[in-house]
Nucleic acid binder design. Structure first.
Length: 368
DNA sequence: AGCGTTACGGTTGAT
DNA sequence: GCATCAACCGTAACG
């Protein structure tokens, strides 16, 4: 199955077709951008296609999250049994009613809201297929679902309050948290705080490091060694639509974890950052019907997050790089300095700290 | 050269 | 369990 680990792109970077880049790399992309590094340079350094860098950065700007979107799953049905029941009732009450009228009534009666109301064509189909003879309600409806508040079908994991701040300036945050303290950990279940601090990021040097996560469980056993975790597939999936709260907290599932195996990036230096990522999955609002558009006003009310990361990374000094390969010799074409400000004028200043904020995410999981 | 976009081949996961 | 299928992914390539 997953033997096919990864493929190598034109830049020499490793990726797994169809799967999101590891959070560690996504994070790195955002961090570097916040430092003022141009996207094209980020692409080269991390060996990630520019299209991908562009996408990740764009998403971060608008949602505040570095996490990939929710993969898989199905959209919740809008024509729940409860909705069908109402449609039937309306039809029974007025056999000549038009589908669009039914639609309006569903909204008026708050059976549905604008995000999940069935389309006129869906209503027509229901009338045709399920309610042929209205005379007898066979109802077998169990309506178990609680549609009352359907509005946000998927979980929203939250989103960060502020979108893109480039150097917000402020607080620098604590910088290092050094070692130990949490032990593995995963997230407690509940929400939690968000920790926004990241690992390191202060210097560029770290920046090149790629590795990160080690979270939980085992994974990566030797941390230092990079790699060998036999687990594969897990890493971060932080996505997926989950629904109710109950588990969602886990939207994260396995999260990050091993970035390695599949991706062993050849990076040469690795810092051990442990980073974690913050994150979120997507704007909740945007997933299916729900969305609120750009300004839309819908914002999700709650966010759940998870937070925390457990760093632990140990500092092993060198983590083994495998082979020495290297991928990236510093490729900066231009000295960084040049690069950095290039945008000019921007009042912005110097980026020095990397982002300060991101949201924390958590990971949980434990091996399953 | 840089970067937004998108076709493509791929995976995932709720139904 | 298996099959659907829509959602997402990153790369490569186009503009």
């Amino acid at each position: 199955m997953e033997q096919a680990y990864g493929e190598v792109n034109q830049l020499g970077g490793v990726f797994v077709n169809g799967r999101p880049l590891p959070n560690a790399i996504r994070l790195r992309i955002v961090e570097l951008a916040q430092l003022g590094i141009r996207p094209c340079d980020i692409s080269r350094q991390l060996r990630v296609s520019h299209g991908c860098v562009s996408k990740i950065l764009a998403r971060y700007n608008e949602t505040g999250s570095i996490l990939p979107g929710a993969i898989g799953g199905s959209k919740p049905r809008v024509t729940t049994p409860n909705v069908v029941k109402h449609i039937r009732d309306y039809k029974n009450g007025d056999p000549g009613i038009f589908a669009w009228e039914i639609r309006d009534r569903l909204l008026a009666d708050s059976v549905c809201d604008k995000y999940n109301v069935p389309s006129v064509s869906s209503i027509s189909r229901i009338l045709r297929n399920k309610i042929g003879n209205l005379s007898q309600p066979g109802h077998y409806e169990n309506h178990k679902q609680p549609p009352p508040q359907p509005a946000l079908p998927y979980n929203h994991i939250y989103q960060y309050p502020y979108p893109n701040p480039m150097s917000p300036g402020g607080t620098k945050m604590s910088s290092h948290h050094h070692h130990h303290h949490h032990s593995g950990v995963a997230v407690p279940a509940g929400h939690v705080s968000i920790s926004r601090s990241w690992p390191s990021a202060h210097s560029v040097s770290n920046i090149l490091g790629i590795r990160t996560f080690m979270e939980q469980t085992g994974t990566i056993a030797g941390t230092d060694s990079s790699a060998y975790t036999p687990k594969m597939e897990d890493w971060a999936n932080v996505n997926r639509p989950s629904f109710s709260a109950s588990q969602n907290i886990n939207g994260i599932e396995k999260t990050a974890v091993d970035a390695d195996i599949k991706y062993s990036q050849p990076a040469s230096s690795l810092s051990s950052v442990s980073s974690f990522v913050p994150a979120c999955a997507y704007p909740s609002s945007n997933q299916y019907g729900v969305y609120g558009g750009p300004g839309g006003g819908y914002v999700t009310p709650a966010h759940h997050w998870q937070a925390q990361g457990s760093p632990l990374a140990h500092h092993g000094p060198s983590v083994t790089v495998r082979g020495g390969d290297i991928a990236a010799p510093m490729t900066f074409k231009h000295p960084v300095r040049e690069v950095v400000n290039r945008k000019a004028a921007s009042p912005v200043d110097k980026p020095q700290e990397a982002l300060d904020n991101l949201h924390g995410l958590s990971i949980s999981a434990s091996s399953s």
